[in-house]
Design a protein around this nucleic acid. Sequence first.
DNA 1: CTGAAAGCGCTTACAG
DNA 2: CTGAAAGCGCTTACAG
Lengths: 346, 346
Amino acid sequence: MQGSKRPTINDIARESGFSKTAVSFAFNDPSRISEKTCRTILETAKRLGYIPDPMARNFSLRRHLSIGFLLPQVVQYSLQNPYTMQVIQGIGTVCENHGYTLTLIPPLHKSITEAVRNAAVDGLITMGMTVDMDIVSVMQTRLLPYVTIDGTPDELMPSVNIQDEQASYDMMQLVLASGHTDIVVAALSSDAFAKEGQPDSVPSKRMQGFRRALAEHNLQLSDDNILVAECTLEDGRRIGKQILQRKPLPSCVVAMSDIVAIGCMLACKEANIQVPSDMSVVGFDNIDEAACITPPLTTISQPSKEKGRLAAEALFRILNKEELASAHMQVPYTLIRRESLADRKN
Amino acid sequence: MQGSKRPTINDIARESGFSKTAVSFAFNDPSRISEKTCRTILETAKRLGYIPDPMARNFSLRRHLSIGFLLPQVVQYSLQNPYTMQVIQGIGTVCENHGYTLTLIPPLHKSITEAVRNAAVDGLITMGMTVDMDIVSVMQTRLLPYVTIDGTPDELMPSVNIQDEQASYDMMQLVLASGHTDIVVAALSSDAFAKEGQPDSVPSKRMQGFRRALAEHNLQLSDDNILVAECTLEDGRRIGKQILQRKPLPSCVVAMSDIVAIGCMLACKEANIQVPSDMSVVGFDNIDEAACITPPLTTISQPSKEKGRLAAEALFRILNKEELASAHMQVPYTLIRRESLADRKN
DNA sequence: CTGAAAGCGCTTACAG
DNA sequence: CTGAAAGCGCTTACAG
């Protein structure tokens, strides 16, 4: 079976005595031919083991029937982040409803741009994209529709976001209201796609929110108190260890991502530092683990599945040449207070 | 930009004054043409905004550069299970290394068979597949290579498994050794793909292991003590509620999957039943949540990423016409004892 | 109801 | 080094 060749539409046409046209109709639009012809053709197909080649069909119809999700990091990291996984879930559900598959696209030969040039999909969803990135011009050149989640909104960049600046402000307010003053921020590196100094990128927005709250308390963040982490558990742990070198310990670590916050907490556990009595930790995203870890993590809850769903639905609307109600979709967030943040006022 | 047509290789050939052949070489094998020609062509391409169409290229080369992962349930459930996600991670890493994308394939119009007929991929990885399923004959007809994880090994079915019967036996031995006798099994429904009564399917194997251990203690499982759940948190919770109706409560729930076990524990928490003092619960898979939930879950640890990795590597070996060292790969498991299982001997 | 033929956008064996 | 032409396996407008 493995060695032989698959029959093509030509074989079925010849063997059944009808034309290629008829064979094609038998599979795609039986009403165009007589029942008898259809039956004969389908029987011949079954006998010879013929299944129309999806690639040839899609090529002819100029479509892929697949949506691409560009992995922001190498597979190992991207899929390790429950937040990303939730986003993928939301996208996947919409794809399923539309009869599409969901293609996960890792960097190709280390290059995300290469991956986009070669992506065999009808449209792309990305995370953290800015309009001036190389991949955007590639998508535009390829006339590939795209939507970004947690990216920088722009006229040419349909996007799904929460109010990152405000959410971060709220979080920092809570931390400050709890009596913390010696604060370290575990920031996100602008990720794989990002260029330097995007003032509207999500990490920047969050930093702005933190700073605004601090400023209102006449505090500011020195560079020493900002550590940059990749969005992975391991890098969170690394940051955590680094923070634990300090004496005295900061009273609170404010992380831009739960996975990083949890990495920090791991480092604490390993060093026998008690959270929150020795040091508080707060996160961002409200992944499932945030609730079930000990102590439970104070964090910002984002509707991650909803973000994926909205992005995918917008993309399908673009594919269908429908109007977008708004190119910049916003979803609500919630501040969730749990035990990882100690009250230092008393 | 959205409305206009993309230039094709013909446009570049005409505009640059060279042949299609030369244009093709410029992109794929520059050594075949002079440097000057190559430069001219690439400049023309850039000027006109030409990027070779991946679909046409793949069609011509008879390949997709993508591996398919057949989702065993609807997207919502499949991607909600951390075990499945880990498997996908393992597969994804291998795809990345090979320069392939990973296509997640949900049922098409509710039909998995339809999805396989139309899958635009070079090979497929599935979970829980048996050789006599419809999709297997579709894959064979399409000459699509495939590998199954947690499926039923067969000559025509390359597979990756743990020793499910033995692992389940070990688990039940532990439960019995801890003094439990009133035991309820939360079994997995043979899933979306399965036909009735597969004696070699993973759920059957696990049941056999449970029964062997019970038999050695002169116990057997009445039908009343077997509840079948879908592999989801929600269905675990449903099963949990059902179990909590019983008086007296069973002393231990033995689940075939952590996600179901955790669903049960949720039901307990909601009903104010203490695990493990009122009732013990054990699971299977050792997903991350198993360790961080309260109380931590006793379970069987499976190397889930490794399973995905092995399956994908086997698939690529088949694609490259290499020999498989073995068509039936086995990975080791570990029994992990945590607090969700009470000791009733004392 | 049926079929011959052009077309989708590439690759590549072959000839020069 | 370069190009004309066949081929990958389908779909579909058009004519009968």
